[in-house]
Design a protein around this nucleic acid. Structure first.
Lengths: 226, 226
DNA sequence: TTGCCGTATGACAAAACTGTGACAACGATA
DNA sequence: TATCGTTGTCACAGTTTTGTCATACGGCAA
């Protein structure tokens, strides 16, 4: 599993460090910036999974950053949690209006913030992950780790599931054995490329009537039918 | 196929040699430097395809080099893999923030590093290479590995596909048998130049009505019609 | 028109690929 | 500890793909 990255845009260094420390402890990767314009730039180039955005910032205030993020094609979908100091509450309406997903009033409970972050990320991941994971009657529920063919459950082992998921996510594209080994087995795997074949066979057997969604591209690799 | 060049900026000579040796074995050309400022200079003048950058360097540290690379107009797009020693992990965030594409913590697995390099390079090449691969009714979808003539699918073998792709990418230009053997078969291929002829015949047969897009330039080679 | 040289063709055997069944190693679980 | 499910390897067989060769063909210049 790839670590999710959270961008912290906050000018108070103490808070920034506190947040970074706690987020890292929770297993997230963090990026941070103490300045609005800079933070916006990082968001655009690194595309974090979530942004913690302070309202009061030097250079460019949080609302403007929010508005800009919302406008950018590849940042519009990133969830934002606004951090506001007491007394700025009036603005929260505007913030939410502008696309923030949630807000926290300082001083806030770190624990609560962590929980909200986890929830929001889960929602977003699910939404993104579930979107295209069904095709030609084969569908995967990545969260529940359940697979089905024409609405009939089938049992897949962990590896089979990851393999099918990878193929499905790249439906229509040929995936070479090397790519599959890297993505599904991981870089550490030092094995026989033909291992992939065996797993394809097992997958096909389990997919049964739907086995033809897995196409062999001779001399290249495998492809989930477009 | 032109060799890709990788710049190694690392002060420990043993590691530098180890990396250079392995990279060359993988078919890359290498440049190296044991000093930050010097490495930066080489990067600017030679424009390598990828940079391996150690964090701890004499003279100018890795982060500064990274920042400078990011700033330079003709170095900003070069992917960077940071090499960090254990315990420097805190900095990786900054590194990623500054534009590194990936990082490895020492001691790292050379094999894994090679795989990551391959993947990153592939991503970068793909992004640049995907273009209008269609002409005179012949179109290729390199991702899906599908070919069609006048919107009708045709089956090509792996070699035929690569050959047609190469000709198409150089549409309008004559390609000699030697060039085709180098690009399509690989520069290590020591075979009969007439092999190309046979494959051209097979391609023409499969292209059917569109066979005339493949022109023979007597005494020189072949050309995809402009 | 003839002869030369490069190219197209058809046939073929070698090489390369993929699908399969079997199996041992491993780990989890009862 | 015994058992069961999962995984990675391997050897083998059936096919397809590929490289080579011998031969026929065709453009071009003399």
């Amino acid at each position: 599993m790839i670590k999710q990255t959270i961008l912290i845009i906050e000018d108070e260094e103490d808070i920034r460090k506190l947040l970074a420390y706690n987020l890292q402890k929770e297993g997230y990767a963090t990026l941070d910036s103490g300045d609005g314009a800079d933070g916006l730039h990082i968001a655009r180039s690194k595309q974090p999974d979530l942004i913690l955005l302070d309202l009061m910032l030097p250079g460019m205030d949080g609302l403007s950053v929010c508005r800009e993020l919302e406008r950018g094609k590849n940042t519009a979908a990133i969830p934002i949690i606004m951090l506001t100091a007491k007394g700025e509450e009036l603005d929260r309406v505007v913030g939410l209006e502008l696309g923030a997903d949630d807000y926290m009033v300082k001083p806030f409970s770190v624990r609560e913030l962590m929980l909200r972050i986890r929830n929001i990320l889960k929602r977003h991941v699910q939404a993104a992950a579930r979107a295209h994971l069904a095709r030609h009657g084969v569908s995967l529920d990545t969260e529940a780790h359940k697979a089905s063919v024409e609405n009939a459950r089938i049992d897949l082992t962990a590896t089979e599931f990851r393999l099918l998921e990878n193929l499905l996510r790249h439906a229509g594209q040929v995936r070479t054995r090397e790519q599959l080994l890297d993505d599904v087995w991981g870089y550490h795997f030092e094995g026989y490329a033909r291992t992939v074949d065996t797993h394809m066979r097992r997958l096909r057997a389990k997919l049964d009537q739907a086995a033809d969604v897995l196409e062999t591209v001779r001399g290249v690799g495998y492809r989930f039918k477009e």
